[in-house]
């Protein structure tokens, strides 16, 4: 086996062990159990490489993203064009993945369907990271009342089951793409805030920060030049995981028919639609299921590798 495929061989390293042990449990587990190991962790850059498997995963995400962005330029029939081919046909040269129950091209629907998932997930996590992340850095470094209040607020938000909140909003108002982005961005605020805050707390009193303070650097400079670079890797790896979680959330909503309205294709609603024809033509629903699985796998895997590489305790849920 090539080195990179053995992703977990590195776990023998006791540092990673601690990272892992306290990463999965979510914010609360971390608070209670990891105080002791927090300081003991040191990073060893350069020792572990990301490996080819990581780059394959990243490449796959990139391919999917590019296909979604340039979907209009690809030689594909309109995803909503019914009767583009015979209904429920198998793969052919004209329709590489076959057609669905209305004769729509499955590959085209699959690629255009990626757009909803990717736009919602990347946009909402970007907003969530920007706002939650900066709040987290400031709260973590400044401390005091600001920190206490922001932290308490995050706890209250986290106390509500997220999908339930989405369903509640979907029940009482119609979903649109911007609205979905706003909802998921709001939901991602609290977790991203807590991760950034935790990472900031861990480095706030390290020597290099004290050195900067001693040499007369201002607060803003310390936050952006000293702390930001050292918390960024763990925040990014967590954000990648957030993207996967948002994709699952949007997919669940779409599966229930409560995301963007039909006939706009999205992987979730394609799976739900194809379900009716499971006995006749399972591929209609299996193809988007496989696509979803592969994308999530790539996201989870690369997020995990990044977290591992940068010795981040906060990388996992």
């Amino acid at each position: 086996m090539p080195e990179g495929t053995e992703s977990h061989q590195v776990d023998i390293d006791p540092d990673t062990l601690h990272n892992d042990a306290h990463g999965h449990g979510g914010a609360r587990a971390r608070d209670k159990t990891s105080a002791g190991v927090m300081e003991a962790n040191s990073q060893e850059p350069g020792k572990r490489v990301l490996g080819p498997a990581f780059w394959i995963a990243v490449g796959w995400i990139a391919i999917i993203a590019l296909a979604a962005i340039f979907a209009n330029l690809l030689p594909l029939p309109n995803p909503n064009l019914t009767g583009a081919g015979p209904a429920m046909a198998g793969p052919s040269l004209a329709h590489l993945l076959g057609t669905d129950e209305l004769g729509r091209d499955l590959l085209s629907r699959l690629i255009f369907g990626t757009r909803v998932s990717l736009v919602v997930s990347f946009a909402s996590i970007a907003i969530g990271t920007a706002i939650g992340g900066s709040l987290g850095i400031v709260a973590g470094y400044v401390g005091g009342v600001v920190d206490w209040m922001a932290n308490a607020l995050a706890y209250i938000i986290l106390a509500f089951p997220p999908l339930l909140l989405l369903l509640a909003i979907a029940a009482f108002s119609k979903q649109t793409l911007p609205k979905l982005v706003a909802e998921f961005a709001f939901l991602s605020l609290a977790p991203l805030f807590r991760v950034t805050r935790g990472a900031t707390l861990a480095v706030a009193n390290r020597e290099f920060v004290q050195a900067a303070v001693a040499s007369g650097a201002g607060r803003f400079r310390i936050l952006t030049r000293e702390i930001l670079p050292s918390v960024l890797p763990s925040v990014i790896s967590y954000a990648l995981l957030g993207v996967a979680i948002v994709i699952v959330g949007e997919g669940s909503l779409a599966f229930l028919g409560l995301s963007v309205a039909l006939p706009t294709p999205s992987w979730g609603n394609m799976i739900a639609e194809g379900r009716t024809f499971l006995a006749v033509d399972p591929w209609i629903s299996l193809i988007p299921s496989l696509a979803m699985f592969s994308l999530l796998l790539a996201l989870n895997f690369s997020a995990d590798k990044l977290g591992e590489r940068f010795g981040s305790r906060e990388a996992k849920l």
């Binding site: 699952v248 997919g251 669940s252 599966f255 979730g268 999530l296």
Partner: peptide, 8 residues
Amino acid sequence: MLSLPAFV
């Protein structure tokens, strides 16, 4: 398994 939500 982590990448297999209920609807998938």
